[in-house]
Design a protein around this nucleic acid. Structure first.
Lengths: 344, 344
DNA sequence: TCCGGGAACTGAAACGTTTAAGTGAACAGG
DNA sequence: CCTGTTCACTTAAACGTTTCAGTTCCCGGA
């Protein structure tokens, strides 16, 4: 079965292949007569022709393809979306890209290199990398001269575009809120706190808030593991084992909260009656949870949309090496915090 | 900046381009000497060469790309993953594909045609379509002579591969379970019940179970809308408005349950105290919910894995026009159902 | 009548691979 | 010494576009 190509259309319409190409890419209208144009389009329709995008990419060096790299949080674990945040972000990215006539080349990533060399040679027009990557790949990335947008990464580099949020400020906002509700001893639960990582930033915000309220920083109030439901469960156990010293907790992701709440419940404790908590992200889950979560809201759709816009702008104008977009945060009050009275 | 091509490697290694190609695709080892092989590999490494996959696809008519089409449930709504089921499925698909050396070309779909003509011309090696599509596209799909796997679709066609579950049987299992717990009046909440659709199948299962227990089918016990959290909320309101006639409810998706539970709670009703419910899918959310959901479990990872395997097998052997895989279901008992005593 | 110039195309090279077919050297068998 | 095989490559033709550089043709102006 012969796939119909541009030549078939040309023959059918009685013109050359290049004319067909010009019509299809509607080059400035003056150079092709209306009559030819309609004849070509008729042939296209009649034969059911659709261009071969591989050939187009090869020839034009544009692919209308955006590479998207999403972290696979644990090696060997299928569910890269163990945190629904990624699903929502991806969804927003896909939607925006599709509106603009782009498709997504999706790859999960463990912390291996392979994904890079692959993603690059599809000839993608740009790459959106979500999350945090070790620095050694970056030089490789630079070599390929393709616009790169780093979403939620701690890396700062003059050759990459950045989309992020005020992690530190957001965390401070959350903890300050708890303090405003009367809490004096506040825990911190997060993924692994690595130098310059997102969790580190949020930890700093946590410290900031305590400090400005003159509250002590307790070593035993900090829990650090992985960002998923299971760790939330474990953190709850640990919290009880350590003696339930804090009346409130700040968690760096909503999924963590989901696990934490569940873990507490299994041990007979309730939120917010026994422990208050505020978390981070405001994934749609946060509102579904019970209690619904008071959380630092970030606009995930906007983040995804922005990522696509930035990558496409940079693709159109390769002079743009570096832009930085820090999206605003706000606290959403729901039902996971209660007031704490002095001496309770 | 010149992208290094196979010719550069050839020059560097002092061989022809085709030799390089043969080495890279490691054709049967006898035909290339070990010495040449190492020299080529050295050149590849030295120059940092990586093949251009577009060119490769164009020439070899294989792309190592799988097209994945995920329904965007509502037009204009970014979150195609409003049902986390899709995220989990996609994740499993991506993981399996990556293991096999394939990448994913992702596109959301409204019920328009455009996505098809696009997906096809990337020269994907196969297409995985999730959910249900109107029939008119199918003839178009057939024309493109590419293996197609339909996941959770009602369409049966000798030219497509099918992966699904026993929807009807699963629903029956769920409702039978409720009956076993003593419930006599049981509601049904689902997305729109269209001819031959998944929801129709589950509705039939619901009817089966009632019938075999000699229970009447009540018109007012059926709620049909869209498969998302919001409709779950609205269904709860409607349930109360109609007089809370049923002591238990079967919902066709976990997200629906999430909304329903929340909606009830807002009106002062509790699950399972006032209403029992069992739902469908066993998305990871189902276990996080409170109460955790008794639900019909389907193995989403397995579904995704199978989809990739089938599509790749079919790509390797174009004689395989049609296979059908119906994955098993089982009921997972959690905390959303309580026993109902006669005359309560 | 000739010339210049624009409109409306066409020709052909290029994009970077794969792969069928071809080539030459080495070598074994007779 | 000739012939046939095998080994280890190389040649060149695709694959289906885009796009630069022509080429025709026609028309208006001098």
């Amino acid at each position: 079965m012969h796939r119909v190509s541009i030549k078939d259309v040309a023959r059918e319409a009685g013109v050359s292949a290049s004319t067909v190409s010009y019509v299809l890419n509607n080059t400035p209208t003056e150079t092709i007569s209306g009559e030819t144009r309609t004849r070509v389009m008729a042939a296209v329709r009649k034969l059911g022709y659709v261009p071969n995008l591989n050939a187009r990419s090869l020839s034009s060096r544009r692919s209308n393809l955006i590479g998207v790299l999403i972290p696979q949080t644990e090696p060997g674990r299928e569910f890269m979306f163990s945190n629904p945040f990624y699903g929502e972000l991806l969804s927003a990215v896909e939607y925006t890209a599709r509106q603009r006539g782009y498709h997504l080349l999706l790859s999960g990533t463990q912390e291996d290199q392979s994904y890079l060399s692959i993603a690059r040679n599809r000839g993608v027009d740009g790459i959106i990398i979500v999350g945090t990557y070790p620095g050694e790949n970056l030089t490789e990335l630079k070599r390929m001269d393709v616009p790169v947008v780093l979403v939620d990464s701690y890396v700062r580099d003059e050759d990459f575009h950045i989309i992020g949020i005020e992690d530190r400020e957001g965390a401070r906002m959350a903890v300050r809120y708890l303090i405003g509700k009367g809490h004096r001893r506040i825990g911190f639960i997060s993924g692994s706190i690595r130098e310059n990582g997102v969790n580190m930033k949020r930890y700093q915000g946590y410290c900031d808030a305590l400090q400005e309220a003159g509250l002590p920083l307790e070593k035993g109030a900090v829990y650090s593991g992985t960002v998923d439901y299971e760790y939330g469960l474990r953190a709850a156990e640990e919290y009880v084992r350590r003696g339930k010293a804090q009346s409130a907790v700040f968690l760096t992701a909503d999924v963590l909260s989901m696990g934490f709440v569940k873990g507490l419940r299994q041990m007979g404790l309730g939120v917010p009656d026994d422990v208050s908590l505020v978390s981070f992200d405001d994934v749609y889950l946060a509102n579904m949870a019970c209690p619904s979560l008071t959380t630092v809201h970030q606009d995930i759709r906007e983040k995804g949309r922005k990522a696509v816009e930035v990558v496409l702008e940079a693709a159109a104008d390769r002079e743009k090496r570096h832009t930085e977009w820090i999206l605003p945060l706000r606290l959403v009050e729901r039902d996971s915090v209660r007031e704490w009275r002095e001496g309770e």
